[in-house]
Design a protein around this nucleic acid. Sequence first.
DNA 1: TCGTAGATTTAGACGTGTCTAAATTTCTTC
DNA 2: GAAGAAATTTAGACACGTCTAAATCTACGA
Lengths: 222, 222
Amino acid sequence: MKDLSQTMQDYLKAIATLDRGGEVSTTDIAAALKVSPASVTSMIKRLASMKLIQHKAYRGVVLTHAGRKVAMEIIRHHRLIELYLAEALGYTWDQVHAEAENLEHHISEDFEDRIAKILGDPKYDPHGDPIPTKDGHLPPTVHDRLCDADVDDVLIVRRVNDDDAELLRTLTEHGIGLATTVRVVERDETSGHITIRVRRTTVRLQHSSASRIFVERQAVVS
Amino acid sequence: MKDLSQTMQDYLKAIATLDRGGEVSTTDIAAALKVSPASVTSMIKRLASMKLIQHKAYRGVVLTHAGRKVAMEIIRHHRLIELYLAEALGYTWDQVHAEAENLEHHISEDFEDRIAKILGDPKYDPHGDPIPTKDGHLPPTVHDRLCDADVDDVLIVRRVNDDDAELLRTLTEHGIGLATTVRVVERDETSGHITIRVRRTTVRLQHSSASRIFVERQAVVS
DNA sequence: TCGTAGATTTAGACGTGTCTAAATTTCTTC
DNA sequence: GAAGAAATTTAGACACGTCTAAATCTACGA
């Protein structure tokens, strides 16, 4: 849609991803994109001058309506491509992210429409992440993280972040995928580890891993 | 394979495409890439310092073995993508070039291998252009151009350059595709136009169009 | 409230790839 | 073979996106 550089698109996508309702900090953007905070500041100035973000000095940034639209379009590309790679080309869920990351900036509107149609206008990608619609709306999804669950909670895995291929492979090895039911058996508050039971085995996860897994509380069976 | 910028890849591809056995001129590269000759000179210096091309000042450039390998890999990507878009996503032959031009620099080795396998290790793209093998060899193809044919020659269309979408649409409208047989009915040496007959209709082509169409002399039927 | 740690911005530099204008070399033609 | 035309290169500038080092601002604890 817009004629923005790939770099600008990446910044907007990162800001959208980091958005938790308030301002997004320079440091967080720098960490997400693996560039220095100084680089972020200079790009922030450019994006703000283009009215894609709002910037209050020293206070972080917020996407404008226009900026969010661009970000949603990139995210739509990314997730549609991930699903297409999985469905049509046999990629596994740990392989799709890296490929989509490269392709998302380089497909045409036409390509987007064609794969969306072939996939039947899907709402979720292989990791359970919602695919924004063409007009930028996100299908509903869960926001509770496994790292916040209590011992003895019984949970259904609904989403796993796509950016840690190692974690995705580990989950597959243990037979954990979308819709898998797990039970929290232990929380180690000092180390942050969380241990879950799935079928006959237990899996011990780092806090950073558990924070990438989104779950739904098992409906109570009457 | 190599960690070259997209721009460098484009230069190498252009040089490979313009290669007619001898040196390729600065001006021709500039025209192909739509940049100024001065820009080409500065990029030539960089590519030469990387041993991807040989450069004799004021005398043009030649690809080295390493440079040709990179170029062939990009061309392989381009043509595989074109065929995949046509076969799997329903693109017509006038639509594939623009999309492939963007994607060719951004697919992984893995992606290349997967679509090549799905397509059955094809040798030719939708325009009849040969797809380089992984080790950089080009399947055989015809090199005679329609613009060089004589009146009354009966010819089979075997290749059409992919970079003129308008021409490709015109050919489709007149029912001309790969394997179509045509007969030269007139050559206008002053204007350069060439007129051909296909089935019941005649088509008048500019020299630049006829030079993009490659033909095979009809085998003599005994 | 004061000082400082941490976050942010500024200053200044660099590499890439582009441009125009000017200088230089090669080619063509008489 | 010399002069002019055409191609090529050099010189110098600029936008983008990055960096490090230094300056500045914010927030928090004593």
